[in-house]
């Protein structure tokens, strides 16, 4: 049997399988039922090897062996019409499950986006904290109520080369952030602004957008903390 012949026979079987399948799934009227009863024997005989497989393995070893052998034979040869139908149904079912998973995932993502609060361990919640009105408040960033420079005790002017720090106090359009947004006290705000101007003036930091190194990291989805920390600038001072 040539290759082409084998293919054409398989195609014919496929067509006949579709022809058998359609009336069974879509109609239960009398003539169709009659054709189904005609095909009934055929379908039974063709499905037995598959349906017998688990039963045979448990009941009788010799029968199981026979089942295995016939399976092997069938696996090698072309699929019967009914088997092809089963495979197609399985594939369709898998696709359906996949679509369902995707839909569940999308729903979850949508809901998670509506819940911006990042629950920290040990926090307390009451039913009111789960309401949309309360959740909305967690979406907008607030002005920090502590002076970061005072808290960490560093000098902004010594850190003009630290582009992740400089970027933090600039907008994406390259402007220096207002102290309303930074939460720095006037002295530190002035120092920070001077450090930014110094970095931009020396060409160490772009004046129109974020630093390319930070952009690279954000493109790879890495946090800014992935940047190796520069050596302590106070030690570099002469």
């Amino acid at each position: 049997m040539s290759c082409r012949q084998w293919l054409s026979s398989a195609a014919r079987q496929c067509q006949s399988a579709l022809a058998q399948q359609q009336p069974r799934t879509f109609s239960t009227s009398a003539p169709v039922a009659a054709t189904r009863s005609l095909f009934h024997d055929n379908t039974l005989s063709s499905t037995t090897p598959n349906s017998r497989r688990p039963r045979a393995s448990s009941a009788n070893p010799s029968e199981a062996l026979h089942g295995l052998l016939t399976d092997g034979l069938e696996r090698g040869g072309p699929l019967s019409a009914e088997q092809q139908r089963e495979v197609m149904e399985q594939q369709q079912g898998g696709a359906r499950a996949y679509v369902r998973d995707l839909r569940t995932n999308a729903t979850t993502e949508n809901y998670v986006r509506q819940m911006p609060r990042r629950w920290r361990i040990g926090e307390l919640y009451a039913p009111r904290d789960l309401t949309p009105a309360e959740m909305k408040k967690w979406r907008q960033g607030r002005r920090p109520n502590k002076d970061v420079v005072d808290m960490l005790g560093f000098s902004p002017l010594d850190n003009y080369r630290n582009f992740s720090l400089i970027s933090e106090f600039m907008t994406t359009m390259g402007r220096i952030k207002h102290s309303d947004d930074t939460g720095l006290r006037p002295v530190n705000q002035r120092k920070m602004a001077k450090a930014i101007r110094r970095a931009v003036g020396m060409g160490l930091h772009p004046s129109v957008h974020r630093h390319p190194e930070i952009l690279r990291l954000s493109r790879h989805g890495l946090p800014t903390s992935a940047i190796p920390t520069p050596s302590d600038p106070s030690q570099n001072r002469l």
């Binding site: 609060r117 990042r118 002005r143």
Partner: peptide, 11 residues
């Protein structure tokens, strides 16, 4: 993080 709510239940 400066994302918080002033009306949330305290810890």
């Amino acid at each position: 993080t400066n994302f918080n709510s002033d009306t949330a239940t305290l810890a």
